[in-house]
Simulated scan of single mutants.
Amino acid sequence: MSRTVFTLLLGLMVSATVTAAPSWGVEVHDRLAVPSGAPTKAVAITLDACGGAFDASLIETLIDLRVPATIFVTKKWLDRNPAGTAMLLAHPDLFELEDHGTSHVPAVIGTGRRVYGIAAEPDAAHLEEEVSGAAQAIRSLTGRAPVFFRGATAIYDAQSMQIIRSMGYQVAGFSVNADAGATLSEAQISARLRAVQPGDIVIAHMNKPAGSTAEAFAATLPSLLAKGYRFVTLSGGRLQPA
Rank of each mutant, 00 (worst) to 15 (best):
N207E: 07
T17L: 11
A219M: 05
I63G: 09
E186Q: 15
S166Q: 09
L127D: 11
A214Q: 12
G112W: 02
A204G: 05
L225I: 14
T7W: 01
H91V: 01
T213Q: 12
L141A: 14
L193M: 12
P39W: 08
D123E: 14
P122N: 12
L12T: 14
I71T: 01
H126I: 09
G11R: 04
S190I: 07
A125F: 13
R139V: 01
T85F: 02
T183W: 07
A214I: 00
P68V: 01
Y169H: 13
K208S: 09
A187L: 06
T19A: 12
I71R: 07
A134R: 13
I189R: 10
V26W: 09
F95I: 09
F148R: 11
A134F: 13
T7I: 05
S23R: 15
S235K: 15
P92V: 10
R80G: 11
L9P: 00
V28R: 03
V5D: 15
Y156W: 08
V26D: 00
L225Y: 12
T153Y: 10
R80H: 12
G143N: 10
E186M: 07
A125C: 04
S36N: 10
V108I: 05
A219Y: 10
R230Y: 04
R80M: 14
Q162E: 07
I203L: 15
Y156V: 00
Q162M: 11
G143T: 03
S160R: 03
R144N: 15
A187H: 06
D48S: 03
K41P: 09
E186F: 06
G168T: 05
A204H: 08
P68S: 02
A191H: 06
G181N: 07
L193E: 00
S235F: 08
G52C: 05
A90S: 14
G37Q: 10
A107H: 02
K76L: 11
E129M: 08
L193H: 05
M167N: 06
A120P: 00
L94R: 05
M13H: 05
L127Y: 02
T220S: 13
F95G: 10
A210Q: 14
R31E: 02
M13F: 02
M161S: 13
V232A: 14
W77S: 07
E96A: 03
M13D: 12
A16S: 14
A242R: 06
G133I: 01
I45S: 10
G211D: 04
P241Q: 08
T85I: 08
S223R: 05
D55F: 12
V5G: 09
C50W: 03
V18L: 13
E128T: 15
G237K: 07
K41T: 13
A86E: 07
C50F: 09
H100S: 15
R192E: 08
V18K: 04
Q170C: 05
